[in-house]
């Protein structure tokens, strides 16, 4: 972009800029006094009472645990996520999805995403005799402590919150999609309506109010465990105490905060 375009953009943006300035200043005042009130979009009402006392993001660090051996691949989580977060229904946009791994006796690994049924793909071989092992793996944004997407965003529209969640500012994302390229887990997609990058937020609007993320709420077998890593006794900390834990693609040094128990080495 050259200078001329920059100035042109400014001329368009100035009236709007002043307006946001006015809007943003009261927001700044409330920043410390409790983050659970929406100043904008007043149409949204919450069913939960305001959580007690001020919410201090510094005192939390959220993560998720996933017990592979408990996942039955029912996709309740995927549907709940799409409903809760306005994710388009088409099978190209997911904040979370389920993979099925089938490893046959000749060590051939077949993977499919059970939420994507394309007309072309054949049903997986269901001959039980040939299966060495098979299991489901839920996937979602790993909310990395060292996130490559945040590193590459040219305008700083994606960032880590103090409580350890990576968010996207949909008002400032320019749609360059460098973050989509940089994410090793393909957890990001371009939302076809907002035309901005979108991804799992751990249902930030729920967890700050004391609710569970939608996927964890509906999981029938408690294969998904949500919790606070800073808490001494959370279900997540308990899970990590009782299991050998693995994360996805540890060699990339992203420090994921989605922890898998009983994860198979074939899972990438």
């Amino acid at each position: 972009m050259n200078k001329r375009q920059f100035l042109k953009g400014l001329i368009l943006f100035f009236p709007a800029g002043g307006l946001t300035g006015v809007l943003a200043s009261p927001v700044r005042g409330k920043e410390t006094s409790g983050a659970d009130k929406g100043t904008e979009a007043s149409g949204a009402k919450t069913t939960q009472p305001q959580s007690t006392g001020a919410y201090d993001p510094e005192r939390h660090n959220y993560g998720m645990g996933i017990e592979i051996d408990k996942c039955i691949g029912c996709s309740r989580c995927v549907e709940a996520c799409k409903a809760e977060n306005n994710v388009p229904q088409e099978p190209f946009f997911f904040r979370t999805w389920i993979e099925r791994y089938v490893i046959t006796k000749d060590r051939e690994v077949t993977v499919e995403s059970i939420n994507v049924k394309s007309r072309g793909t054949r049903e997986l071989a269901q001959d039980d005799r040939e299966i060495l092992r098979s299991f489901f793996v839920p996937k979602l944004c790993n909310q990395c402590a060292h996130p490559p997407c945040v590193q590459v965003c040219p305008v700083g529209a994606t960032f880590s919150t103090k409580d350890g969640v990576v968010l996207v500012d949909a008002n400032r994302c320019i749609g360059c999609r460098y973050c989509v390229q940089a994410c090793p887990y393909a957890a990001r997609y371009l939302h076809p309506e907002t035309k901005t990058a979108d991804k799992c937020t751990f249902c930030y609007h729920r967890v700050v109010k004391g609710l569970l993320p939608a996927c964890v709420e509906v999981c029938p077998t408690q294969a998904r465990v949500f919790g606070d890593l800073k808490s001494k006794a959370s279900r997540l900390v308990r899970l990590m105490r009782m299991n050998k834990i693995h994360v996805l693609k540890p060699s990339l040094n992203t420090d994921p905060k989605v922890y898998y128990a009983q994860l198979d080495g074939e899972v990438r």
């Binding site: 809007l23 200043s25 929406g38 100043t39 939960q48 809760e84």
Partner: peptide
Amino acid sequence: LIPRSLISDDLHRASTVQRELAKPIKFAG
């Protein structure tokens, strides 16, 4: 000329968090 609200990362982040929190809840729990 540019108001601080446009160039302050902190303000942008605070308002992103506010907007995120204002999103409607569909699952009551």
